[in-house]
């Protein structure tokens, strides 16, 4: 447990830096796997005929699922499956990480079959105190997802807590 955490100029310089674009795929298999993992029984997330019957062209992505970042061994994170440079591993001398919050803002529904491009940006860093964890570094980051036409389709903002 850290008594204090200093946000160094080097850390602060990372704020606002955008990562290289990375493919995020919304596939039928990915949609079903996510829906299964959450526990959906709604056939709309599994069966294209059920999806079409309620007005979708194909399987819709369940809420909170923005596609799967393409996995590339040696580049993607082996534990979190995240693109290079965006992994949530503990850093800055801190050893533990927890998710603090997550928010998605959609411009339109996402459907299986879409190939998106995500860019990650570090938005903010703040030091907070917790009775349980002592000094914590709260890192806010954002992923912007664009479709093949370059239009923004969704943004996900998340806070991770390092302690």
């Amino acid at each position: 447990m850290a008594d204090s955490i200093e946000i160094t100029p080097e850390m602060r310089a990372q704020i606002g830096v955008e990562s290289s674009p990375w493919p995020y795929e919304v596939t039928a298999t990915g949609v079903r796997a996510f829906a299964r993992g959450v526990g959906y029984t709604d056939p709309v997330y599994y069966d294209p005929a059920a999806a079409c019957a309620v007005g979708y062209q194909y399987l819709p992505a369940p809420p909170c699922y923005l596609g799967t970042p393409a996995f590339l061994p040696g580049h993607s994170d082996p534990v979190f499956s995240t693109p290079p440079g965006t992994d949530p591993r503990p850093r800055y001398g801190l050893t533990q990480v927890l998710d603090g919050s997550t928010e998605a803002v959609y411009e339109r529904p996402l459907l299986a079959g879409e190939n998106l491009v995500g860019r990650h940006r570090l938005v903010d860093m703040q030091v907070k105190q917790s009775r349980t964890f002592g000094a914590m570094l709260v890192v806010t980051s954002e992923i912007t997802l664009r479709d093949g036409g370059g239009e923004v389709v969704a943004r996900e903002r998340s806070q991770r807590i390092f302690y």
Binding site: F34, G37, V38, G39, Y40, D42, V44, V54, G55, Y56, P60, P62, P63, C64, Y65, E103, A104, V105, Y106, R108, P109
Partner: peptide, 20 residues
């Protein structure tokens, strides 16, 4: 995501979740 499922089940695809 489970809260997303709650909203999805409630909505019954008669709408679009814009933010969660």
């Amino acid at each position: 995501a489970a809260l997303g499922q709650l909203v999805s089940d409630w909505l019954g695809h008669q709408g679009f979740i814009r933010r969660i």
